[in-house]
Simulated assay, not measured.
Amino acid sequence: MGADESRHERFQRVAEARTNKIIDMLRLLGNCSNRTNYEYSEDEVQQIFEALEQEMEEARSRFVFSGENGPRFSLRSRR
C-alpha cells in the first residue's frame, strides 16, 4: 500500500484482485463438469454448490454494518 493510497482505494484494489481470483477458481471448478474426464453424482454437485452458497452468504453478512440490525422475527410476517 502506497503512502498516499486511501483506505477506499486499498479496498478497491484488494477486493478486485480477490474477486477475480474467485471468478477464476469458479471457472476452473466448472471444468470439472466435463464427464469425459470426470465422474460425479448429482449429490456431490449439490454438496459443492451448497458449500459455496453458504460461504457466499457468510462473506456477504460480514459487510453488514455492525450498527444495523437485521429484520425482527415475527410469525405474522411468514405466509
Rank of each mutant, 00 (worst) to 15 (best):
G30H: 12
R60C: 04
D43G: 13
F63T: 09
L52D: 00
F63C: 13
E55S: 01
Q54R: 15
E68L: 10
Q47H: 01
S41Q: 10
L52Q: 01
M25E: 13
F49K: 00
R35H: 07
E42Q: 11
L29G: 05
N37L: 13
Q54N: 10
M25Q: 06
V64E: 14
R60Q: 11
L26N: 11
E58R: 08
F63E: 02
S66A: 10
S33F: 06
N31G: 15
R27S: 13
E58T: 05
R35M: 14
F49D: 08
S61H: 01
N37G: 04
Q46R: 06
E57P: 06
N34Y: 00
I23Y: 01
A51I: 06
L29S: 06
E44S: 04
M56Y: 05
A51W: 02
E39I: 03
F65W: 12
M56A: 15
L26S: 02
L52C: 01
E53F: 05
E55C: 01
S41H: 03
R35W: 07
E55G: 00
E58S: 05
E57Y: 12
L26W: 04
Y38Q: 07
E42S: 07
E42R: 13
E42T: 09
L26P: 02
L28Y: 09
R62P: 12
L29I: 14
F49N: 06
R62K: 14
A59K: 06
V64R: 09
C32T: 09
E39V: 05
E68G: 03
D43S: 04
Y38G: 00
F65E: 03
Y38R: 03
R62E: 06
D24S: 12
F49A: 00
E39W: 09
M25C: 11
M25R: 11
M25F: 11
G30K: 12
D24R: 15
L52E: 02
E42K: 07
Q54F: 08
E42H: 09
V45M: 04
N31I: 11
E53I: 07
I48H: 06
V64L: 03
M25Y: 02
Y40C: 01
Q46G: 00
I23W: 00
R35A: 10
N37M: 12
L52N: 02
E53G: 08
S61P: 04
A59Q: 08
R62V: 02
Q46I: 08
S33R: 13
F49E: 01
Q47D: 15
Q54C: 02
E42D: 14
E57C: 00
I48Y: 07
E42M: 12
D24F: 08
L28N: 15
R27V: 11
L28V: 11
N37D: 09
Y40P: 12
F65A: 00
E50D: 13
N31Y: 14
V45Y: 03
E50R: 05
S33N: 15
